[in-house]
Design a protein around this nucleic acid. Structure first.
Length: 475
RNA sequence: GCUCCGAUGGUGUAGUCCGGCCAAGCAUACCGGCCUUUCAAGCCGGCGACCCGGGUCCAAAUCCCGGUCGGAGCACCA
C-alpha cells in the first residue's frame, strides 16, 4: 500500500539568479537557543537548495552585550545541528571598513556628527525638528568623527547620525544613529577602539560588501530594513532581497539570553546546558535530534504570520526520529519491593524493541522467594483480588495485601500489564525539563545502553547510565 | 499615539499573488477499532476551521471597503 504523504516544502525565493549568498547574524551574547534555530535552518535550507554560501556573521558591535565564550559556542551549536556554515565573519574585526564608509557618507553629506544630549536629540526628533548640528559644516563633522574614532571624546558625548527625513511619519526612521561611543570596552576588539557602529549601519555595509543576495529574518527587523535602505540608496548599492517572516512565541519559555545568563550567574541554572533552558545544547542533551529541528521549521514554513511554537508537534516529530532506535528498558520510579509468594524460578526474556527482534532481549532469572520492584503508584493501584501481569515475567494476583503467583498464567487474558525491575537493579534518576527529578531503579542491563531509550510506560529518556542519570526527553 | 504586518479546526500548516479542480488538503492532538506481554510504534475509521459586516462577480478562503482582534517595531540593543 502506498501512502500519500504531503511533504511540506519551503516556497521558492524570489529573484534567484544562480547561487545565493545568505547569512546568520546572531549577537554573541550566549549560545544559540531554540529561537535561533529557525533562522539557522531556513537559511541553511535555501543555501542547500540553490547552492551558494551561508555566512555566519557574528554581530558584536555592542561591547556591553558580549559573552566571549559565545564566539566558540555559536559555531559549535550550528555544527551540532548540522547547519553548514561556509564562512565566519566577525564584525568587530571589520571596524576599519565601517569607519571608511562612515567617512565617505559624511563627505557625501549623508551623515553628520551630533553632540546633543541624548534626551534633547530624542525630543527634537519627535517634534520633527532639526538639531543644531544637522547643518554644521562638513569639516566640523569630519573633525568630530576623527576625535570620536581616536578616543578623544567621552562615551555618549557624540554620535554619528544618518540624515534621512525629519518629517517621516515613522519616528524611528528620522535621522537615525549610526555610530556611538559605548562606555564598555570591547572584550575582543580591545582598547584601541572606541567608536562602534550600531547594527543598522554595520548590517547595511556588510550585507553589501559580503555580497548578500537574500536575507530572511524576523518581522521585528522590518523597521531596521527601512533604515538600512538609506545606506544602500546613498551609496547606490543594489539592495538584497529581504523577507521578513512572522514571529514565533514560545509559551511560558525563558528565551532571553540575558536572563539565562543571569540565572547561571546566580546559580539558579547549572550552566548553558541546564535542561530547564531552551538552548540548543540543553535540548540536544535532553535527547532532541537535530533532524527534528530541521523538519519542524520546514513544516512551519516561511510565512509572515505570527505563530506559537508547538511542543506537541515538535515532540511528535522527535518521537518519529528516535522511536525505532530507542531500546526499551524498565525504570521503576519510587520503587516498592515485592516478593511473589508461591512463585517458582522464572527465566524472563524481554525484547529490547517490540518491532525489532534483531536487537535481542534482556534476560533475568528470578528465583523463587526473591523479590522484584514495581512502582509505588502501581502497587497502590492494585486492588485486592485483581490480577496483573508483570511484563514478560508472570501473572500475579493480590490476595490479602500480598502478591501471589497466579493460578492462571494464561497469556491471552486481558488485564493490566505493568513493568518491574529485578532485585539487582541500579539506582537511577531522571532529570525532567522542569528541573524536578524522578528517582528509582533501572534494570541491570540498562547499564549498557547509553543514549536515547524508552523507559516503558514512562517516556523517552536520554540515558547516561554510568552517571546513574538520564534526561527526560518527552513521553 | 505613530509605522508596519497578519487573521484557515485545540495546535502547526496547505491553499490566498493568477477567484471556479476547496461542500477546504496534510500533520498533531483527541475519540473509537485493529495489532501488541509498554499507557510506545504501526494500521483503519471518526470529530473538528476559512474573524465579523458590506461590496464586486455567474462564482470568493482567495479581490475591494469598513470593523474587530492579534502581533512586531518606535531612535545611540541586535
Amino acid at each position: 500500500m502506498e501512502k500519500k504523504v504531503q511533504e511540506h516544502v519551503l516556497p521558492d525565493l524570489k529573484d534567484v539568479k544562480g547561487k545565493v549568498v545568505m547569512r546568520l547574524a546572531p549577537s554573541p551574547s550566549g549560545p544559540l537557543h531554540l529561537g535561533h534555530t529557525r533562522m539557522a535552518f531556513l537559511n541553511d535550507e535555501y543555501v542547500r537548495r540553490y547552492g551558494g554560501k551561508l555566512i555566519l556573521r557574528i554581530e558584536d558591535t555592542n561591547p556591553a552585550n558580549i559573552e566571549p565564550a559565545a564566539y566558540d559556542m555559536i559555531p559549535g551549536d550550528l555544527e551540532m545541528l548540522g547547519v553548514k556554515v561556509h564562512e565566519i565573519v566577525i564584525q568587530s574585526s571589520r571596524l576599519a571598513i565601517y569607519y571608511r564608509e562612515a567617512e565617505s557618507l559624511i563627505k557625501g553629506g549623508h551623515m553628520y556628527a551630533c553632540t546633543c544630549k541624548r534626551e534633547d536629540a530624542k525630543r527634537l526628533k519627535l517634534e520633527m525638528k532639526a538639531c543644531p548640528h544637522r547643518e554644521q559644516p562638513l569639516e566640523t563633522n569630519l573633525d568630530i568623527f576623527n576625535s570620536m574614532r581616536d578616543g578623544k571624546l567621552e562615551p555618549g558625548s557624540a554620535s554619528l547620525v544618518v540624515r534621512t527625513s525629519l518629517d517621516d511619519p515613522n519616528p524611528s526612521l528620522r535621522d537615525w544613529i549610526a555610530f556611538r561611543i559605548p562606555a564598555a570596552r570591547h572584550p575582543i576588539a580591545g582598547d584601541d577602539f572606541h567608536l562602534f557602529p550600531t547594527m543598522n549601519f554595520s548590517v547595511a555595509v556588510d550585507d553589501h560588501f559580503l555580497g548578500l543576495t537574500h536575507v530572511i529574518r524576523g518581522r521585528d527587523q522590518l523597521n531596521n530594513t527601512y533604515r538600512q535602505r538609506f545606506i544602500f540608496d546613498y551609496n547606490g548599492w543594489k539592495v538584497p532581497f529581504y523577507f521578513h517572516y512572522g514571529m514565533i512565541s514560545y509559551p511560558g519559555s525563558l528565551l532571553k539570553t540575558s536572563l539565562m545568563k543571569k540565572g547561571i550567574r546566580e546559580g539558579k541554572f547549572s550552566g548553558w546546558d541546564d535542561v530547564r533552558l531552551l538552548t540548543v545544547r540543553a535540548l540536544l542533551r535532553r535527547g532532541y535530534r537535530k533532524e527534528t529541528f530541521r523538519k519542524y521549521w520546514i513544516d512551519s514554513g516561511l510565512r509572515d504570520v505570527d505563530a506559537t511554537f508547538s511542543w506537541e508537534i515538535f515532540n511528535s516529530i522527535n518521537k518519529g526520529f528516535i522511536d525505532s532506535d530507542a531500546r526499551r528498558l524498565f525504570f521503576v520510579k519510587d520503587p516498592h519491593q515485592i516478593t511473589i509468594s508461591e512463585a517458582p524460578d522464572i527465566e524472563s526474556s524481554i525484547p529490547f524493541h517490540p518491532s525489532r527482534p534483531e536487537l535481542g532481549a534482556r534476560r533475568y532469572s528470578v528465583k523463587a522467594g526473591s523479590s522484584v520492584y514495581i512502582t509505588t503508584e502501581d502497587w497502590l493501584s492494585i486492588s485486592d483480588g485483581e490480577t496483573v501481569r508483570l511484563k514478560d515475567l508472570c501473572n500475579v494476583t493480590r490476595v490479602d495485601g500480598r502478591l501471589t503467583y497466579s493460578k492462571a498464567q494464561d497469556l491471552s487474558r486481558k488485564g493490566r500489564i505493568i513493568h518491574w525491575a529485578p532485585e539487582k537493579s541500579i539506582g537511577f534518576t531522571v532529570v525532567k525539563p522542569d528541573g524536578t527529578i524522578d528517582s528509582g531503579l533501572l534494570e541491570p542491563e540498562g547499564m549498557d545502553v547509553e543514549g536515547e531509550v524508552q523507559m516503558e510506560r514512562y517516556g523517552y529518556v536520554n540515558s547516561f547510565p554510568r552517571e546513574g542519570t538520564g534526561y527526560f526527553t518527552h513521553r
